[in-house]
């Protein structure tokens, strides 16, 4: 009895959602189809020009030699790992408060891309660390909090995978994203604290004013290219997600009728 009741409830919320669907996501499908080619072109241009600049124009660093070129992967990836979480949090707020039907699609689509760039930031950081520090992995503050960020991304994605009903999964995942946003600064602070406790000072620093401006420009161009790549993949994933929900509603309608 309760089981049938629940099934009926799910069905009703699905119908309500599908009415929403025709209002907004259709417009997004049209808009993204027009915009996507330009986004891909900007991503390709940014990455192409950036690669040229970073290999042929940027000089080797006076301390680190050519190994500094790994920065052109590492820093943009690290930037997008933060950017991705920012998008997830903003979309989750939109999803929870305004119930915007596109917001949870955006949050779900941003997560795997953010996770991939977090992974890339860690890998490139390790490959940079080996010649610089003599080891692929150091438990320094930034590496460690990036690793925790990756775990939070993966947990968020795991939640989406395990909950079947997209409406419920969307709202539960949004709660997790916001709890994560509240906790991330605390985690970051605690990891910094832990680091100073175990490794007082004299850690090799990757950032700050030591980067020469001749290296900064190519970095900037690659970062812009990567950001457009992020947006392009995100739009493709959003389109796929909207269609996936349409498939779900159609299947339910055909099963019922």
């Amino acid at each position: 009895m309760t089981c049938r009741f629940v099934a009926l409830g799910l069905h009703q919320t699905d119908m309500a959602w599908s009415i929403h669907t025709f209002a907004n996501p259709t417009r997004f499908m049209r808009f993204s189809a027009i915009v996507l080619p330009y986004v891909w072109a900007l991503a390709g241009a940014g990455i192409g020009i950036g690669l040229y600049l970073s290999f042929f124009v940027a000089p080797p660093d006076y301390q680190q030699g050519d190994s500094v070129r790994i920065m052109f992967v590492h820093v943009p990836a690290a930037w997008l790992s933060q950017f991705g979480y920012g998008i997830m949090v903003a979309s989750s707020i939109m999803a929870l408060i305004f119930r915007h039907p596109l917001a949870d699609v955006a949050a779900k689509s941003a997560a795997p891309i953010g996770a991939v760039f977090t992974f890339l930031a860690l890998v490139a950081g390790g490959l940079w660390g080996k010649p610089m520090w003599g080891t692929y992995w150091v438990w320094d503050a930034r590496t460690t909090s990036t690793l925790v960020l990756l775990f939070i991304y993966l947990g968020y994605m795991a939640l989406w995978v395990t909950i079947e009903d997209p409406n419920r999964a969307a709202r539960v995942a949004a709660v997790l994203a916001l709890v994560g946003a509240v906790n991330l600064p605390i985690i970051r602070f605690s990891v910094d604290w832990w680091n100073t406790l175990h490794q007082p000072a004299s850690v090799f620093r990757l950032d700050g004013p030591t980067i020469h401006s001749s290296l900064l420009w190519p970095l900037f161009v690659v970062a812009i290219g990567f950001t457009f790549f992020f947006l392009g993949v995100m739009m493709v994933r959003m389109r796929a997600e909207i269609l996936r929900r349409r498939v779900r509603t159609l299947q339910m309608q055909q099963a019922a009728g």
């Binding site: 795991a158 395990t162 909950i163 709660v175 906790n183 985690i187 605690s190």
Partner: peptide, 27 residues
Amino acid sequence: ALAVGVRRGGLLISLLVLPFYVPVLIF
């Protein structure tokens, strides 16, 4: 609460919660 109603939610809870336990462990 996030994992309520999820089959085999125990593992999922660990994945979700452990990152948030980091500050407690450190301090």
